[in-house]
Simulated scan of single mutants.
Amino acid sequence: MRLASYNVENLFDRAKAMNLDTWEEGKPVLEKFAALNKLLGEITYTAAMKTKLAELMIDLGLEKSDTGPFVILRRNRGGLLKRPQAGGIEIVAQGRADWVGSLELRDEPINEHAMRNTARVLIDLKADVLGVVEAENRPVLAAFNAEIIRALDGMPFRHVMLIDGNDERGIDVGLMTREGFPIGPMRSHVDDRSENGEAIFSRDCPEYSITTPSGGHLIVMVNHLKSKGYGSKAASDAKRHAQAARMKAIYEEVIADGAENIAIIGDFNDTPDSEPLKPLLHDTDLKDIFTHPAFEDGGYPGTYGLCNAANKIDYILLSPSLYQRVERGGVFRTGMWPGSRPRRWDVFEELKRPEDAGSDHAAVWVDVNI
């Protein structure tokens, strides 16, 4: 069977703030969105909080309207704010209970060529079990599978599953499997909490139980760890370290329950030698498929951007039982922009510009005899 992991970077729609030309442009918007959302959720709004709420709303383009260039403030009932004729914003609510509504990121459609190249990757990858990172939700993933893959003469996956996670931007993790690889019992860790009460996982760390045509069983966990994109480096590193430590604990629990064939896959947003990933990569018996003698990296050690060593952030980790069953593995980069001076790898004929890339990430795959 072929197991693969691919960060699709959304399929139909993506938050506008994440679709800007550079991450540096979108980062302040996402940081202010997160800060405003957190403040809006407070039980009581102090005078200082109200000042900050108004400041953030103005920064996000909400001074004149509930619809800004990157966010939408939905006010269903109750009074949250007033907009004086002289300008500015006045927060009138005394706390979260005084109004009903939400703050949302605005979406915009994905480039059609990029969408089709994402589908081409899924078709040519020929995976039997595919972990998907950054899909909007299950209906979108199912529609992409049934409509776009079929439109390009590909064979849709038989099973599509995605458990809604903690990220408000619509970047969740899911699983797609072929006929003969049914998804059995599932367990979500979306509500796992740290000692301070915060959700550990930025999205989720779902456990999927899968049966193979030969009667073999394996458990696949898909994850997308905290990015380095916004927030301080210390906070981001601490978050990923906590996530890696929790994944280690989950893995050990699964092993203790008698399972042998376990794969942990996804975008971990850090390199193999990083301190945040140490609990998972160095303090367990899990093996990175990149270290297997039958694995071919295509001449480049990374999986993101131009695939240098510092861009090795996508993983397939296997338990010893699965690792010894590996027949071969590799990195699929045909849907990625190859650079221009020089071009680093061959791409789809339809990939003419960087924005036409199916993703900034390569897909990673492994063939396992199970």
Results as ranks from 00 to 15, higher is better:
Met1Lys: 04
Arg2His: 08
Asn7Ala: 08
Val8Thr: 08
Asn10Thr: 03
Asp13Trp: 11
Lys16Val: 10
Met18Ile: 05
Leu20Lys: 11
Asp21Leu: 10
Asp21Ser: 09
Trp23Val: 15
Glu24His: 12
Glu25His: 08
Lys27Gly: 01
Val29Leu: 15
Leu30Met: 15
Lys32Phe: 03
Leu36Val: 05
Asn37Ser: 12
Ala48Cys: 06
Ala48Met: 05
Ala48Ser: 11
Asp59Leu: 13
Lys64Trp: 08
Ser65Val: 06
Val71Glu: 04
Val71Asp: 03
Val71Lys: 15
Leu80Thr: 02
Leu81Tyr: 00
Lys82Ser: 10
Val92Ala: 04
Val100Thr: 10
Gly101Lys: 05
Leu103Arg: 04
Glu104Thr: 08
Glu104Pro: 06
Glu108Cys: 07
Met115Glu: 11
Arg116Ile: 02
Thr118Asn: 14
Thr118Tyr: 01
Leu125Trp: 00
Lys126Asp: 10
Lys126Phe: 01
Asp128Phe: 01
Asp128Ala: 07
Val132Thr: 07
Asn137Tyr: 00
Ala146Asp: 10
Glu147Met: 04
Ile148Ala: 12
Ala151Trp: 02
Ile163Ser: 13
Gly165Trp: 00
Asp167Cys: 07
Asp167Tyr: 02
Arg169Lys: 09
Leu175Glu: 00
Arg178Lys: 15
Met186His: 13
Met186Ser: 12
Asn196Tyr: 04
Ser202His: 12
Ser202Val: 08
Glu207Met: 13
Glu207Ile: 13
Ser214Asn: 14
Gly215Met: 05
Gly215Trp: 01
His217Gly: 10
Leu218Cys: 12
Val222Trp: 00
Val222Thr: 15
His224Arg: 15
Ser227Pro: 10
Lys233Val: 13
Ala234Gly: 07
Ala235Thr: 14
Ser236Phe: 02
Lys239Ile: 05
Lys239Cys: 09
Ala242His: 02
Ala242Leu: 12
Ala245Lys: 11
Met247Glu: 12
Glu252Lys: 06
Asp257Trp: 04
Asp257Phe: 05
Gly258Gln: 12
Ala263Cys: 09
Ile265Thr: 14
Asp267His: 06
Pro272Gln: 04
Pro272Cys: 09
Asp273Trp: 04
Asp273Val: 11
Pro276Gly: 05
Leu277Lys: 03
Pro279Met: 01
Leu286Gly: 01
Lys287Glu: 11
Asp288Thr: 07
Thr291Cys: 11
Ala294Ser: 07
Pro301Ile: 01
Thr303Tyr: 01
Cys307Tyr: 00
Asn308Phe: 02
Ile313Cys: 09
Ile313Arg: 10
Tyr315Phe: 13
Leu317Tyr: 00
Pro320Ser: 07
Tyr323Met: 12
Arg328Lys: 13
Val331Lys: 06
Phe332Lys: 05
Thr334Tyr: 04
Arg343Asn: 03
Glu349Arg: 13
Leu351Thr: 02
Leu351Ile: 03
Pro354Lys: 10
Ala362Lys: 03
Asp367Ser: 08
Asp367Gln: 11
Ile370His: 08
